[in-house]
């Protein structure tokens, strides 16, 4: 209720925007907002993942062992096929997600979320915020949930999902995952048409300030070349098999966390193989089902061995 009141009391004119809307400012604001709502602030998980959901902070913790788990973290996400050599203004093979996991999902979660938007300068009273059906499914890890994509003036700014199943296991209690598209939100707040022009830290370039492009453009160029041309297919195929084997062996000794890391490594190897465009439809299906088996086995092992 308090949140609602604050939202209403702030008048329209003052919403443009005295908050720090540079990239790191948005991250810092969201972190401290959610910290004030009882979340632990974690640092990014140190593995290559395609989405914040895949880190054990979300995947495994939404299953067990805690009755209550409220966590936020920024997660770099790698999607090799999305690389555009730094030429597309809106697509990257490496970008950031701001990830919130609330377990159990609180009854006032929408108000909490809307409150977070206000803090970064998106006052719902000054915009048109909508919750539009978008159910989430990740067959590779046997997970699904219901929820929405959240729109602000027609732009998707967040994914909002109530997890129902992870690793083929029914979730209980239900976790809520909110995933903010940081680059997109920043572009909107800063009025920029290219990710690379985003102001990273609010300091003018002549005083040493940096843009997103200053930090990541070269990486986009080099990693696109690596993803599409130079990633060694034989090594990747071998890596996939090795990781798969390691994962299964680790599960035999009930080391779910290291096993799950190996599963994530296998996923990333597969994503790179996929980007190289060398697998056929049938092979693709078979890789996905092999990954699903690993992910499910890790989830089950984690469930069974955590108290």
């Amino acid at each position: 209720m308090n949140q609602e009141k604050n939202m209403l009391d702030s008048d329209l004119g003052s919403t443009v925007d005295r908050v720090n809307n540079h990239f790191q400012g948005i991250i810092l604001t969201l972190q401290s907002y959610w910290a004030s709502k009882g979340c632990i602030v974690l640092q990014p998980y140190d593995m290559e993942v395609g989405a914040g959901t895949l880190t054990p902070f979300t995947t495994l913790r939404s299953l067990a062992p805690d009755e209550v788990w409220r966590a936020v973290y920024v997660q770099p996400s790698r999607r090799p096929t999305d690389g555009r050599y730094g030429e597309s203004p809106n697509r990257l093979q490496h970008y950031y997600q701001f990830q919130v996991l609330l377990k159990p999902s609180p009854v006032d979660s929408q108000d909490l979320y809307l409150g977070s938007l206000s803090t970064i300068g998106l006052n719902p009273m000054a915009h048109d915020i909508r919750f539009v059906e978008d159910d989430w499914e990740n067959p590779t890890i046997g997970a699904w949930g219901l929820g929405w994509e959240v729109w602000c003036d027609g732009m998707e700014i967040s994914q909002y999902t109530y997890f129902q199943q992870i690793g083929g296991i029914d979730c209980m209690p239900i976790s809520l995952e909110i995933s903010y598209g940081l680059e997109r939100i920043a572009m909107y707040l800063q009025g920029k048409d290219s990710i690379f022009n985003l102001d990273w830290n609010g300091i003018p370039p002549e005083e040493g300030g940096k843009t997103y492009g200053d930090i990541y453009k070269q990486a986009e160029l080099e990693f696109s070349a690596y993803n599409f041309k130079y990633a060694d297919i034989d090594h990747l195929l071998r890596r996939f098999v090795d990781c798969e084997l390691d994962c299964l062996n680790l599960l035999k000794v009930d080391l779910a966390l290291p096993a799950y890391d190996q599963c994530l490594k296998a996923v990333h190897a597969f994503n790179l193989i996929d980007a190289r465009g060398v697998i056929s439809v049938n092979e693709r299906q078979s890789y996905i089902s092999r990954i699903r088996k690993l992910a499910r086995a890790c989830c089950e092992n984690w469930m069974n061995n955590s108290t």
């Binding site: 329209l12 809106n90 915009h127 048109d128 003036d153 027609g154 732009m155 048409d193």
Partner: peptide
């Protein structure tokens, strides 16, 4: 003011989609 923000936001999103 809000109407103008909403229109500008939607135009912006459509622009990105159309340039894709």
């Amino acid at each position: 003011t809000r109407n103008a923000t909403i229109v500008a936001g939607n135009e912006r999103v459509l622009r990105a989609r159309l340039s894709d």
